[in-house]
Measured scan of single mutants.
Amino acid sequence: GRPPQPKSVEDLLDRINLKEHMPTFLFNGYEDLDTFKLLEEEDLDELNIRDPEHRAVLLTAVELLQEYDSN
């Protein structure tokens, strides 16, 4: 089946190999997954995450988090 739900933002970023963005998220108040899963493209602009590939991966991760919630 699906991988288990990540336990933290750090756990999530670790899985998608984008842990380099951890300080950015923490500094901007994305300390838990409840906050993280509200992330949208405009937020990525504000966080200055410009890499299109990173953005795509992050937004996909957000969608997956929302799916875990609805099940």
Rank of each mutant, 00 (worst) to 15 (best):
I49C: 04
S70P: 12
K7H: 09
I49Q: 01
G1Y: 14
L39K: 00
L26W: 06
L47T: 04
T24H: 04
E31P: 11
K19N: 10
R55V: 06
R15C: 09
Q5D: 03
E53M: 08
L33D: 03
D14R: 08
N28A: 13
P4R: 10
V9G: 01
F25S: 04
T24V: 11
V62A: 12
H21F: 11
L18S: 03
N17H: 10
I49G: 03
Y68T: 13
E40L: 08
R15V: 08
D51Q: 09
P4Y: 14
P3Q: 11
N48F: 00
P4Q: 14
S8P: 03
L18W: 02
N48W: 03
E42G: 13
N71A: 14
E67N: 11
Q5N: 11
P52F: 00
D34E: 13
L33K: 00
K7N: 11
L58M: 04
K19W: 05
K7M: 09
D11A: 05
E40M: 10
E40T: 15
D51W: 02
T24I: 08
L59T: 06
G1A: 12
L18N: 03
L38M: 13
A56H: 12
I16W: 05
N17Y: 01
A61L: 00
Y30R: 01
D45R: 08
F27T: 15
D32C: 09
D69T: 09
P52T: 08
M22Y: 15
E10P: 09
D69V: 00
V9I: 10
E41F: 00
V9D: 04
E63Q: 12
D32P: 00
L58E: 07
K37E: 05
I16V: 10
I16N: 09
A56N: 11
T60K: 15
S8L: 02
L13E: 06
Q66Y: 04
D34N: 11
L18R: 00
R55I: 04
E20F: 07
L47I: 05
E31Y: 11
K7W: 01
G1K: 14
H54S: 08
P3G: 12
D69S: 09
D14W: 01
L33C: 01
E42I: 07
D69G: 11
R15S: 14
L65W: 00
G1C: 12
E31G: 15
V57Q: 15
E63N: 12
P52I: 06
H21S: 03
L65G: 02
L26I: 12
F36N: 04
P6T: 05
F27W: 08
F25T: 06
N71W: 10
D14K: 10
D11S: 04
N48P: 02
Y68I: 11
G29V: 00
T60P: 05
A61V: 05
R15P: 02
E63T: 10
R2V: 07
E42C: 10
N17I: 02
T24Q: 06
E67L: 07
Y30N: 02
L26H: 08
I16Y: 13
P4E: 15
T35C: 10
E31L: 09
E67W: 08
F36W: 04
L65H: 02
A56L: 09
D11H: 03
F25E: 05
T35E: 10
P6V: 11
L18Q: 05
D34G: 08
G29P: 00
P23D: 15
L64G: 15
D32V: 03
P3N: 12
S8E: 00
D11T: 02
D32R: 10
L64S: 15
D69Q: 10
D34S: 11
P52G: 04
I49T: 02
I49P: 00
F25A: 02
D14E: 14
P6E: 07
P23L: 12
P3E: 13
L26S: 09
D14G: 10
D11C: 03
D11N: 05
V57E: 15
E10F: 08
R50F: 12
A56P: 03
G29F: 00
P6G: 05
R55A: 01
A61M: 09
R55T: 01
L12R: 03
E41A: 12
E10K: 08
D51C: 08
I49V: 08
G29N: 03
E20D: 07
E67M: 09
P4M: 14
L59V: 04
E31M: 11
